[in-house]
């Protein structure tokens, strides 16, 4: 009994290394940014130690709100397409006999630097890229199609980038799903489609929620993708923040935008997880 109690007490100490790591590299920068957002702009970047709410007042300019709205819409679209593609992929993966092979293929892109992968897309979509050259050689078009530097390219590359992050949690949920339940549904009168909607989807909802978070949040904060493959119509919040730091040198404003971004992301995560918890109060969440 005594021994057991001792072990149990020790439990909280095991969390310390993680806690220290978390505080140092996550919480501290957060607090700094939070503090910066309430200070005044330094002349050559940085901040001056003078409390001010100017940054937060500036956020609500029409031009900024436009960028914010655009970021929401593009992230939303990218997430939607990603999930729509990820679900059948995960289903096929879960039912495939060569699971390990396909899983490896999905994971391989992670081993390649993301910038390189963006450059690869640039050489595919560019005016002198593979697609345009092939089409011109085939005589289908005479002038290059504008495939790059627009919002379509941004969404395409986003979907490509985040697809593995969406497939994996959905796959893991489907993998745990008992497919004989679909037969039971059919037996009880459901059509094939109804059995998917009424039995499969509710059972893998937590996986889909995780996939949504894993896709929407990086898309919402994305900055390299719109920088390299985007154009004027796809200048996003991430780009705005970077430009505020490097070009306009308005650190408080950049910090305020960052806080804003964090806030929206957090609200989304809370919403999805709380929704999940309400439905399965006893079950432990697995990602």
């Amino acid at each position: 009994m005594k021994n057991l109690k001792l072990k149990k007490d020790l439990g909280s100490y095991y969390a310390y290394p993680m806690g220290i790591w978390f505080s140092l590299f996550f919480l501290l920068p957060m607090v700094l940014i939070f503090a910066y957002s309430f200070l005044s702009k330094g002349l050559y970047g940085g901040v001056e130690l003078q409390l001010s709410l100017k940054a937060y007042r500036d956020i609500f300019q029409k031009a900024y709100l436009l960028i914010l709205g655009r970021t929401v819409v593009i992230s939303f679209e990218a997430t939607l397409y990603t999930i729509i593609i990820a679900i059948p992929c995960a289903l096929a993966l879960a039912r495939s006999k060569r699971q390990t092979l396909y899983l490896t293929l999905i994971i391989i892109p992670f081993l390649i630097n993301s910038l390189l992968r963006i450059f690869a897309w640039m050489s595919i979509l560019g005016s002198d890229g593979i697609i345009n050259r092939t089409l011109i050689q085939l005589g289908i078009i005479t002038d290059s199609l504008p495939l790059l530097y627009n919002r379509r390219a941004v969404i395409l590359v986003m979907v490509y980038m985040y697809l593995p992050y969406a497939i994996l949690p959905i796959f893991s949920a489907i993998d745990r799903f008992d497919f004989s339940l679909l037969e039971a549904a059919r037996d009880l009168g459901a059509t094939k489609m109804q059995s998917y909607i009424k039995v499969l989807f509710p059972s893998i909802k937590s996986g889909i929620n995780t996939a949504i978070i894993f896709t929407f949040i990086p898309a919402f904060g994305a900055y390299t993708i719109p920088l390299f493959v985007g154009g004027k119509d796809s200048y996003l919040l991430g780009n705005l923040i970077v430009d505020q730091v490097t070009k306009t040198r308005n650190w408080p404003l950049a910090s305020a935008f960052s806080m804003f971004l964090t806030l929206i992301s957090t609200v989304l995560v809370m919403y999805v997880f709380v929704d999940d918890k309400k439905k399965n109060p006893k079950k432990k969440r697995k990602i």
Binding site: L181, A184, V199, P202, S203, K279
Partner: peptide, 10 residues
Amino acid sequence: FQNYALFPHL
């Protein structure tokens, strides 16, 4: 069914 196949989410 042999394993009942009840819907766990309902």
